[in-house]
Amino acid sequence: MPAPTALLRRPEDLAEAQATPLPQDNGDDDIMVDATVTAASGQQNTQVQSRDAEMRIDEEGRPKFPPAKEVARKHIAETRKVLIPPHRITPLKSAWPKMYPPLVEHLKLQVRMNVKARAVEMRTSKFTTDSGALQKGEDFVKAFSLGFDVDDAIALLRLDDLYIETFEVKDVKTLNGEHLGRAIGRIAGKDGKTKFAIENASRTRVVLADQKIHILGGFRNIHIAREAICSLILGSPPGKVYGNLRTVASRMKERF
């Protein structure tokens, strides 16, 4: 019985079958891998590994990142001009060697005293790092122009929770003539003892400039000093005000 023709292979058929290429399957299961894709994925993996290496976790499980790199920013000069009252020009000249070092060395500002314009001019420089340096410098110079000492005004540069409040005697009660003078005298006291007592009890600084009263201190401390001064303006005897200040001072000591 002869063999099936399908199983018979001639030498020419075998050579032709080996020469013809195999058909490619275009099915969805096959994934073509490109060299560029492989290189990009490897680069992303290295970036992720480098980020993971940079990030560290402290004892409490919080991530710790390295400090950000400094980016060069375009410098824009800003200026401020603080006018000085005529009666504070002479104290400004005498205290100027003590005033400009904090502004120049601490805040990195450019400062000059314009005697002709009776003003202190300030300007930011490329060395200024604090965004609020110009405002702090203006508050410092304004505090001195209102009558505060340089040592008290410097506290505005070092502390952030200090404020200045200004009000007049007429804002509390309308007084004229001798009544106004007696009210101011009650606030100051003999040789300024009442004013010093208010400052020590409330931990503030008080300046009496004619009918205006300036208070430098924290928010709560300003409230305590203002209540004592308003009581004196309204006619309370100093002895009663001293008693209230002792009570308030003892409460403040217990609080702190």
Rank of each mutant, 00 (worst) to 15 (best):
A3V: 10
T5N: 01
A6D: 13
L7N: 05
R9D: 11
E12C: 04
D13P: 01
D13Q: 12
D13G: 00
L14A: 13
E16G: 14
E16W: 08
T20A: 14
P21Y: 09
D25Y: 04
N26E: 06
N26F: 11
G27R: 00
V33Q: 13
A35K: 09
A35I: 08
T36G: 14
V37D: 12
Q43I: 00
N45K: 07
M55Y: 00
E60I: 02
P63K: 01
K64V: 14
F65L: 09
P66M: 03
P67R: 06
V71T: 01
V71C: 03
K74L: 09
H75D: 01
R80L: 10
V82F: 07
R88L: 11
I89V: 15
T90F: 13
S94L: 14
W96P: 02
M99P: 02
P101F: 04
L103K: 00
L109A: 08
V111H: 01
V111S: 07
R112A: 14
A117C: 02
R123H: 03
R123A: 15
T124R: 03
K126Y: 11
T129M: 15
S131K: 08
G132N: 15
A133D: 04
E138A: 07
D139M: 12
D139E: 09
K142L: 09
S145F: 07
L146I: 06
L146C: 05
L146W: 06
D149H: 03
D149T: 10
D152Y: 01
A155K: 14
L157N: 05
L159K: 10
T166W: 13
T166H: 14
E168V: 06
V169T: 13
D171Y: 09
N176P: 08
L180I: 01
G181C: 04
A183I: 05
I184V: 07
R186I: 09
K190A: 15
K190H: 15
D191G: 07
D191M: 08
G192F: 09
K193D: 06
K193H: 06
T194R: 07
A197K: 05
I198D: 05
E199H: 07
E199A: 08
R205L: 03
Q211L: 03
I213N: 02
I213P: 02
G217S: 04
R220T: 14
R220V: 13
R226T: 14
E227F: 11
S231F: 12
I233C: 04
P238A: 06
Y242S: 13
N244K: 07
L245D: 00
R246L: 13
R246E: 15
T247Q: 12
S250N: 12
K253T: 11
E254Q: 09
F256E: 14
